[in-house]
Amino acid sequence: MTLVYGIVWIVMAAFAVSAVAALVWAIQHGQMERFASAARSIFDEEEPVGRPTDAFPTSGLERRS
């Protein structure tokens, strides 16, 4: 039982430490800087800003009928 208690406390401590470690890592590795370019990091030449990527289908059963 003591062993299980120990494991529970260790895992919970690791849980908290992982959050703090992630925050420290983010700050040290420049993840909290250059927000304008960060927001655009999901866009590129293949799918640039300004191009929508989703629409209702125009083919399919309705067109056939």
């Binding site: 304008a36 927001a39 800003v49 300004g50």
Partner: peptide, 14 residues
């Protein structure tokens, strides 16, 4: 952002 083709309004807030 992907569907409308525009980045999110404020990355700070996110």
């Amino acid at each position: 952002p992907k569907v409308i083709g525009a980045p999110i309004h404020s990355y700070h807030l996110s």
